[in-house]
Design a protein around this nucleic acid. Structure first.
Length: 438
DNA sequence: ATCACGGTTTGCA
DNA sequence: CTAACGTGCAAACCGTGAT
């Protein structure tokens, strides 16, 4: 709805900020190892598989996001690229620090991902928001050592694009404020942004949009929202409206209840035997159970899947999965593992090279919603609860490997364990490793 | 016709 | 030494069978 006449607007223009850490994982590694500054650095996914974070210097060497490390390794090492296995304990810790600093800059924050927050800057009347955002960047840098960029606009989708501009254009000094631009200037900016950079436009939608003649963010903005809803879906319609400055996506300060807890890993080496798979599934279920209790939830079902590697396409492929409902929602690792192993034994077929297994806990409920098991005495129930609490406490203090189920097996007989040969020390979480650093 | 369902695909970080 | 290509989540989509 366009207004022809300037009218009284009781609420100030909506201002949503998107704050995003630059090259988050690489930047975390750099905080604790200043020698990495100015050098090409990459961080690898689990199993040292793919590149998932790159420094500016690595991007300049044309090292692609998502590239399998074994394919680019030779070239990268020739060019002096330094690679790290991912160190999620470190990144999670740094993320918490960043988020708590950001919280001080707005009463309304949505933690969107490990390295991104939306902040509501609406009704910050006397402030110059660009200067405020610069102050924010300085504060985060001083408190954590991490560089961030800030995009500010009328909607979340536009704030994402503004952040994109802040990252691309060095002259902006890390802050891009769309609300300050004249409409024609903003449109010129959007014309120069490929539509694939718009939030919600992935590979498939990008292809489809090109087919109907939509190439830039501006093209998408100018498309007819109702038509786009028919041709695509309601999400696309919202994207179009958001590009036009109408906020359709609310700031979600509180996360909805979690629906599933996943633990899945590729193996360091393919396995064929049931026992190895049992060990892996036991470990993954144990991890999922820890997450479950941390979040004070109970699971109503256990889902297990196994598969061969789709990349070894000369080999016989097999994948299968099974969900087993639990009699009563539980957070007891013993029960969860029992169900997971039962599922695994049903889907396992001999004669294949398995490369990956996964466990997902579903139908999650809170303690209040968990129905008392009529067939299980309260005493048994409480005993299991105390056992799990003791287990978690001991493993937290002495390391995850301290108390384990027998079916998890013995660590040095486990070729399936993932490879992490390039890991940095646990700077923020483990004193022993920290003191070992020169 | 419409809905609920479960499995599959897509997108994001 | 060799072989080697991620993980965790949500939501849309789509075919099916029930009503």
């Amino acid at each position: 709805m366009q207004m022809n006449m300037p009218t009284f607007n009781p609420s100030a223009t909506r201002a949503i900020a998107l704050v995003d850490v630059n090259n988050f994982y690489v930047s975390c590694e750099r905080v604790f190892n200043p020698k990495l500054r100015g050098r090409p650095v990459v961080v690898l996914s689990n199993n040292d598989g793919c590149i998932i974070s790159r420094s500016a210097e690595a991007k300049a060497l044309d090292i692609a996001m998502g590239a399998p490390w074994f394919k680019v390794r030779k070239y990268a090492e020739q060019e002096g690229v330094i690679a790290y296995s991912s160190n999620y304990a470190l990144y999670a810790d740094m993320s918490n620090r960043v988020m708590s600093v950001l919280r001080q800059f707005s009463p309304s924050q949505e933690v969107y991902s490990i390295d991104e927050s939306f902040l509501d800057f609406t009704d910050f009347p006397r402030r110059d928001l660009s200067a405020y955002a610069q102050q924010l960047r300085q504060t985060v840098l001083q408190a954590t050592g991490l560089p961030v960029c800030v995009g500010i606009a009328r909607s979340k989708t536009l704030a994402k694009l503004a952040n994109h501009c802040a990252k691309q254009q060095a002259t902006l000094n890390g802050v891009c404020h769309f609300n300050n631009l004249a409409p024609t200037v903003l449109d010129d900016t959007l014309r120069n942004i490929d539509v694939s950079h718009v939030w919600g436009i992935g590979r498939n939608l990008n292809k489809h949009l090109h087919e109907v003649g939509i190439h830039s963010a501006y093209d998408l903005k100018m498309s007819d929202a109702a038509t786009m809803r028919q041709t695509f879906n309601v999400v696309m319609e919202k994207t179009v409206r958001e590009l036009n400055g109408t906020s359709c996506l609310a700031l979600e300060q509180v996360r909805g209840p979690q629906q599933q807890i996943l633990s899945t890993r590729s193996f360091g080496r393919a396995v064929r035997d049931l026992q190895s798979l049992e060990e892996a599934v036991t470990l993954y279920t144990t991890r999922a159970g820890e997450k479950l209790r941390q979040r004070k939830l109970y699971a109503g079902s256990v889902y297990v899947y196994i598969r061969t590697s789709p990349f070894r396409d000369a080999q016989q492929q097999y994948d299968n999965n099974l969900r087993l409902p639990l009699h009563t929602a539980t957070n007891d690792t013993l029960q969860l593992v029992q169900a997971a192993l039962a599922a695994l034994r049903q889907i396992y077929r001999p004669g294949y090279d398995y490369m990956k297994a996964g466990v997902s806990l579903g139908e999650l409920v809170t303690a209040e919603a968990q129905q008392q098991d009529l067939f299980q005495s309260t005493a048994t129930h409480e005993k299991a609860g105390r056992l799990m609490h003791a287990l978690d406490t001991i493993n937290q203090k002495m390391g995850r490997a301290t108390l384990r189920l027998a079916s998890e097996g013995v660590q040095h007989h486990q070729p399936w364990r993932m490879k992490q040969e390039l890991k940095s020390p646990a700077y923020t979480t483990c004193w022993d490793e920290l003191l070992a650093v020169e």
